[in-house]
Write a protein that binds this DNA or RNA. Sequence first.
DNA 1: GTGGTCTAGACCACA
DNA 2: GTGGTCTAGACCACA
Lengths: 135, 135, 135, 135
Amino acid sequence: MVIISLDLQSESPIYIQLRNKIIEGIASKQLRPGDPLPSVRTFAQDLGVNMHTVNKAYQLLKQDGFIQIHRQKGVVINPDGMPSVDGNYLANVRENLRPVISESVCRGMNKEELMKLIQEVYEEIQKGGEHDDLH
Amino acid sequence: MVIISLDLQSESPIYIQLRNKIIEGIASKQLRPGDPLPSVRTFAQDLGVNMHTVNKAYQLLKQDGFIQIHRQKGVVINPDGMPSVDGNYLANVRENLRPVISESVCRGMNKEELMKLIQEVYEEIQKGGEHDDLH
Amino acid sequence: MVIISLDLQSESPIYIQLRNKIIEGIASKQLRPGDPLPSVRTFAQDLGVNMHTVNKAYQLLKQDGFIQIHRQKGVVINPDGMPSVDGNYLANVRENLRPVISESVCRGMNKEELMKLIQEVYEEIQKGGEHDDLH
Amino acid sequence: MVIISLDLQSESPIYIQLRNKIIEGIASKQLRPGDPLPSVRTFAQDLGVNMHTVNKAYQLLKQDGFIQIHRQKGVVINPDGMPSVDGNYLANVRENLRPVISESVCRGMNKEELMKLIQEVYEEIQKGGEHDDLH
DNA sequence: GTGGTCTAGACCACA
DNA sequence: GTGGTCTAGACCACA
């Protein structure tokens, strides 16, 4: 059983939202290496979205090494472990954080407040793991 | 004189990039309240993009209170100060940070490494201010 | 089927007129929450204006919460209900009414005549709802 | 001495704002028939706007019969009384009120609340007259 | 000269 | 097919 809420009006594409939700599930340990994910068809039906959309999210996750897609066994969280933080990824994150942090600075947050915010979100993500498992 | 580099190949729209660059300029104090920005047409020509693209970025910045657009005096960094961190903004930032932090956690970063990264980006932004002013 | 007449010669921009017409349609219950609106391109063709002009009206309506724009389902009158009368809106309306009422006072209308006029327009708007639905 | 505040960032043109402020002054009896107004040049300097802007406002007011412009005596509030409410004006006001009232209805105001709002603005305008005269 | 508006037309991501 | 983005180019109100 999956508890994923998508925002169909969001400016961010549904397949990206879906990808992110699954990654959040892994981060919060609601999804663990080896855990199965629904088939494209089933998941699409559950979420009320197009099959292509789920497929696109899965492809992204596979590309980055978060999941494995087997013809027979279906889709599972990568049992061999998660991808690592390489230079490429770090550069990307920096590029993404830069405008967010800049705007916060403009709006008057100092370094301490910023750190506190990050920490809160960090713990919020971990707390997600106290719920029932996603699958 | 403006030193802003846009990535025309990027997946993120030019007008968003431009908006962000200007906000980074403010965060790094290269742009200060009251400072003038180029007219949409001049800026467009300088950047090699269309007038409407610049205008779209300006409209976003105006909406959020970062700049003022005077029919006469042209465009200036809001001399009355920057917008504040309200609940709405905070909720937004949290929503934006969540997937980034989640992925970092998945990839094995612990809280300390994450904090260090944030701090580095934070200081990188401030260092931008050591260059000559943007205008 | 949509019956909206725009005045291309008017001093008020087409996209503002269009925005207002749609709001009048909602006020008169010709358009109800959940009702679909034409796609930007279809509507533009029907109205004989450019796609961007319709889009600008839609963006305004979306910003204020009157409509939702789904990447998939297209455009609909906000099914979650309309925006409310908040302090911000009230202040705006007052600011808009002030010159209109002032001029009427100058021209010799007393409070009763003014009230009667408002009431007439109010009922005129509601009468619009007796026509067939807009869609 | 004139106490008129213009919003240079407003979307409404300065000359329209100025026109409206003067009409509000008349409605609140801070300005009475026969009262002098500053010369274009003086007024422009006092307000910090272009002469053309003041002139344009004056031309509008003269056109509608709110003021008289004499080459020698200067500018005065029309001593022969104000323009009246003719059919043309009424039609115009209705057209202006329609979108405002429609939006209020959409946002959930009923007729009574609307009437109360109008009445408040009406009285606010009259209260303006308790201040010192504008000239 | 400046921003505001509008058009015609194009390509693309998304679903 | 839908909205999102971008361009080139035009006219106008405003100051």
